[in-house]
C-alpha cells in the first residue's frame, strides 16, 4: 500500500531541503559571483549579491600575471598521468584477484588497503630526501610517482568490486569455445569491464587533482599544480578577493562538474565496497 503523501508535506520538505542545499553550496556560489566583481565591489559593505557591474577582468589578470596555464597543465598531467599509470598496474592485479582468487587473495586486498592508512607524515622525510637526492623535487614525474602509489590501493579496490560483478559463467563459456587467455581478456572481459574502469578513472582523477599534502610539500614554482598555486594566494594576494575568486573558480569548476557525474562511484570507491 503506497502511502499518500500530501502536497503540503512535500512542499515543506522541498522548502527546507532547498534552503539547506543552497546554504551548503553558498561559499562556492559566492566565490563564483565574487570572481566577476571589481576588487572594490568584492569588499564593499554591505556586499552586493547580483547588482554589480559584471566584469571578466579578474580572469584575464590572473591568466596574465601568474603562470596560470602552466599550473593548470601541471594539475592535468599529474592527476591524469598518475591515474592512467595506476590503472595500468591495477587492472591486471584486480583482474586476477577477481577471476582467479587464491587462498590469500583476501589478505592481499586488505594489506593493500592498509598501505593507504599509512599517514603521509610517516614517510614525508624519506621521500623528501630521496627526491632531493635524485632531482625529483619539484618535478611532475616525482608527483606522478607519489600519487600513483598513494592511490593505487583505491584503484585496485574499486576495480576489484567492479570485476567481481562480471559473471564467471561467461568466462567459462568462452573457454569452452576454445578462447585463449589473451582472447578471453581482449574480447570477452574488456567490453564488460569498460564502465567500471571509466568510473575508477574519473574518481581517481578527482582525488589526485585535489591532493594537497604531497603536492604542497614536494613542489615549488616549476611543477606546482593548482592546489599549490592557490596556496600561494594565502598572503598577501589573498586580500585581493576578486582575483582569488577567479583563480579558485577556474581551479574547482572542472572537477566539480566531473564530481557530479561520479556521485555513485564516490560511495563505492571511498568505502571500499563496505557501503553500496
Amino acid at each position: 500500500m503506497a502511502r499518500a503523501i500530501s502536497t503540503r508535506r512535500k512542499a515543506t520538505f522541498t522548502l527546507v531541503a532547498w534552503a539547506i542545499g543552497i546554504a551548503i553550496f553558498f561559499p562556492i556560489l559566492w566565490t563564483f559571483l565574487t570572481s566577476f566583481k571589481t576588487e572594490a565591489e568584492a569588499i564593499a559593505s554591505p556586499p552586493s549579491f547580483l547588482g554589480f557591474a559584471w566584469t571578466t577582468e579578474n580572469y584575464s589578470v590572473v591568466m596574465e600575471r601568474s603562470n596560470y596555464s602552466r599550473h593548470f597543465w601541471n594539475s592535468v598531467v599529474i592527476s591524469v598521468g598518475s591515474t592512467v599509470i595506476g590503472l595500468l598496474i591495477a587492472i591486471p592485479a584486480a583482474w586476477s584477484m577477481a577471476f582467479v582468487p587464491g587462498r590469500r587473495t583476501k589478505d592481499v586486498l586488505l594489506w593493500m588497503l592498509s598501505t593507504k592508512m599509512l599517514p603521509p607524515v610517516g614517510v614525508l622525510i624519506p621521500i623528501y630526501l630521496i627526491f632531493r637526492d635524485t632531482g625529483l623535487l619539484d618535478t611532475r614525474t616525482g608527483l606522478v610517482i607519489v600519487l600513483t602509489l598513494i592511490n593505487l590501493p583505491i584503484i585496485v579496490w574499486m576495480l576489484y568490486t567492479y570485476f567481481k560483478e562480471i559473471p564467471g559463467e561467461i568466462l567459462e563459456a568462452a573457454r569452452m569455445d576454445g578462447a585463449s587467455l589473451y582472447n578471453e581478456i581482449i574480447y570477452v572481459l574488456t567490453p564488460m569491464a569498460v564502465p567500471g574502469i571509466a568510473s575508477t578513472l574519473l574518481l581517481n582523477v578527482i582525488l589526485a587533482w585535489n591532493e594537497a599534502f604531497w603536492t604542497l610539500n614536494l613542489t615549488a614554482a616549476k611543477a606546482a599544480p593548482l592546489t599549490a598555486f592557490i596556496a600561494s594566494y594565502s598572503s598577501p594576494e589573498g586580500l585581493f578577493y576578486a582575483k582569488l575568486s577567479a583563480a579558485s573558480t577556474m581551479a574547482i569548476a572542472p572537477i566539480i562538474v566531473l564530481g557530479w557525474f561520479s556521485q555513485k562511484q564516490l560511495v563505492r570507491g571511498l568505502t571500499f565496497g563496505a557501503v553500496k
Binding site: I24, W30, L216, G238, S248, I255, Q263
Partner: peptide
C-alpha cells in the same frame, strides 16, 4: 538538484576552500 548542491563542497580542493573561508 539539492543532492548536487549538497555534494559539491567535497570536490573543492582543500587550499581553495580554506582560503575562501578564511578571506571571504
Amino acid at each position: 538538484i539539492v543532492r548536487i548542491l549538497v555534494i559539491a563542497p567535497f570536490f573543492v580542493m582543500p587550499t581553495v576552500s580554506a582560503l575562501v573561508w578564511k578571506n571571504m
